[in-house]
Structures are given as C-alpha cells and as structure tokens.
C-alpha cells in the first residue's frame, strides 16, 4: 500500500474511532436524560392516579360500599384517560394481582402481551407494536394499579437521531478523507522527487539535485542525497578523466613505437631481400641501429614514468641561465626557420 494511502487511512481511522465513540456517548447520554426526565413526569402522573384511587377506596369504605368491579369501573370512567397513557386497576390476592384480562377497569390495548413489573417497579416493554413503560403500585382495598406510558415516540426520536448521526459521520469521513488525501499527497510529494532523482542517477545523469527545503526529515534526506550525488559525479568524472588520459597515453605511445619500427622493419627487409652494395649496407645498418636506440630510449622513459609515483622526486636548484641556453639551443633550427634571430 502506498505511504500516502497509509497516512490517509491512519488519519481516517482515528477520526472514525473518536467521532463514533464521542457521538455514541453523546447520543446515549441524551437519550438516558430524556427517558429519566419523562420518567419523572410519568411517575408523577402515576402517583396522582394512585392517590385518587386510594381516596376513592377510602371514600367507598367510609360509605360502607364494596370495592368491586362496578364501583371501580364507575370510578375509572369518572377519572378519564390521557393520550399516550393506559391504566389498569386489578384486584389483588395473596398470590399477586389478577391477570390483565380480569381487570376491573383497563384501557390497556386488547391482547397486551408485554411484561408487567413487580410491585413498586417500572419496566420498559414492547407490546402491541409500541414501546411502553409500565408502573405498578399495590394500593389499599386489594387493588393494583398498572400505568403504561407510550414511549414509542421517544425511541423513534432516538432512532432518527442515530440515523442523522450516521449520515453526519459518513459526510465527515468523506470530507476528512479528501482533506487527508490532499495533505498526505503534499507531504509525500518530495519523496516522489527523491525517487525520480535516484533513478535518473542510476541511469547515469549525475547532475540532478533534489533541493528540497521543507525543514524536516525529508529536507534532511534531500540534502544528504544531493551531497551524495555531488560526490558520485566527482568520482565518475575523475575516473573518466583517468581512462581518457590512459587512452591518450596508449595512443601516443603506440605512435612513438610505430615510427622506429617502420624504419627498422623496412631496412631489415631490404637487407633480407637483396644483397646491397657496401654503401647501401652501411646506411641500412646505421638506420636500424639508430631506430633501435630510439626504442631503447622510449623503453627507458616508459619505465621511469611507471615508477614516477613510487620514487621520491629529488628537487634541486637549477641554473636559469643554463636552462634557458639549452632551450634556445634545442629550438634553434625551428626558431631560425620561423625567422627569429638566434644568438
């Protein structure tokens, strides 16, 4: 995987992780708060109904009337209902409250299959396609009151919130991804430059420099790379020079070798082919001798050159007059030829 992609993935991972955690925590906290605040209201209302029921029971008992289905039903009707609320008043025996179907007064939906709480407790349950919180209080007169509050809306609201959150997260991810990609591309671009410079150098172009001044590790790498490139270039130039010098030397040497060889071979061939007269013979022999001497000199010089760096050069004072006079002597013919007056 490319480095810039790795950078992007890392950044996105961090964003997703913390965004999700944070968001979830937030949403959960909000929902719990909401539930508990509505819970308080529900309890209040449930409490009110409890009190009303107990008042009625007390009133009935004071009047000497029975606490029976008819009385409770009548009471229930008087009490009325509220939207999103249902209640049920049931007789209670020693084993517990009667099943819901036998309630004196109930506005619970028919066939209610949800859970019912224990005494003085509340439970959140699903029934009849909706979400309820059910409270139960055991009251005077052998009655039990169940109050169920419809929380479906709250839960639906929570689901909507979650959905909105996910969409937000998706958008954040996309935006963060784009920005991260752009940033990481910017940051890793010098690396591409370094790679290109390296392959150019490998191909033989030592003149390229990367020149990256980002003030960070990549900048340092670039600087170090450029120094290396300069060193390589110098070295290669020096080697090429050395090779060229060697070739030049070999060429010159061969030429110096060939000339005497031609003379020697030519005259020797002459002597080999025919019997010359004495004058010819002397000339030929003389030429061979002189050319061979030249070769000997050449060999001597070559040996000296080869050993030049091995020996210590002894520097000694030289008379400038003598050196100049010798130079003039050697060059005299050439100088005269070119019209200079030579003393």
């Amino acid at each position: 995987m490319r480095f810039s992609a790795k950078l992007v993935c890392s950044m996105l991972l961090v964003v997703v992780a913390f965004f999700s955690l944070g968001g979830s925590a937030l949403l959960y906290g909000d929902f719990t708060d909401h539930l508990s605040s509505s819970g308080q209201q529900e309890q209040g209302q449930h409490g009110l109904v409890c009190a009303a029921v107990e008042n009625e029971v007390l009133a009935l008992l004071r009047q000497g009337e029975a606490v029976d289905r008819a009385a409770i039903q009548a009471f229930g009707q008087r009490l009325g209902g509220a939207p999103d609320q249902v209640r049920a008043l049931l007789p209670r025996t020693a084993e517990g409250p009667a099943p819901l179907e036998q309630a004196y007064d109930s506005s619970f939906p028919a066939g209610w299959a949800g859970k019912l709480p224990g005494a003085g407790q509340a439970v959140i349950t699903r029934a009849d396609g909706r979400v309820w919180r059910v409270y139960r209080s055991d009251l005077l007169g052998g009655l039990t009151l169940y109050s169920a509050f419809d929380l479906t809306e709250a839960f639906a609201a929570r689901t909507r919130s979650l959905r909105r959150f996910f969409m937000l997260e998706a958008a954040v991810l996309a935006a963060a991804g784009a920005v991260a990609a752009a940033l990481s591309h910017r940051l890793t671009r010098p690396l591409a430059l370094l790679t290109r410079a390296s392959s150019r150098m490998a191909a033989g172009d030592y003149a390229l420099r990367t020149d990256i001044h980002t003030g960070d590790e990549i900048g340092e790498l670039s600087e170090s790379f450029d120094r290396m490139a300069a060193a390589v270039q110098e070295k290669v130039a020096a080697l090429e020079l050395s090779v060229r010098q060697r070739e030049d030397f070999m060429g010159a040497f061969t030429h110096e070798l060939k000339t005497p060889m031609t003379g020697i071979l030519g005259y020797a061939d002459l002597l080999r082919t025919m019997q010359p007269d004495p004058a010819e013979q002397r000339e030929a022999a003389g030429a061979i001798y002189h050319e061979a001497k030249r070769l000997e000199d050449l060999a001597g010089k070559l040996l000296q050159l080869l050993h030049l760096d091995e020996e210590e050069l002894a520097l000694g004072p030289v008379s400038l007059d003598a050196a100049a006079a010798q130079a003039v002597r050697s060059a005299a013919p050439l100088l005269r030829q070119n019209g200079a007056a030579v003393a």
Binding site: T262, G263, A287
Partner: peptide, 8 residues
C-alpha cells in the same frame, strides 16, 4: 621522420 622518408 628522416629514416622512413629515406627508406621510402
């Protein structure tokens, strides 16, 4: 080269 010239 005098030698070679002479030879030729």
């Amino acid at each position: 080269e005098a030698t070679i010239a002479r030879l030729i």
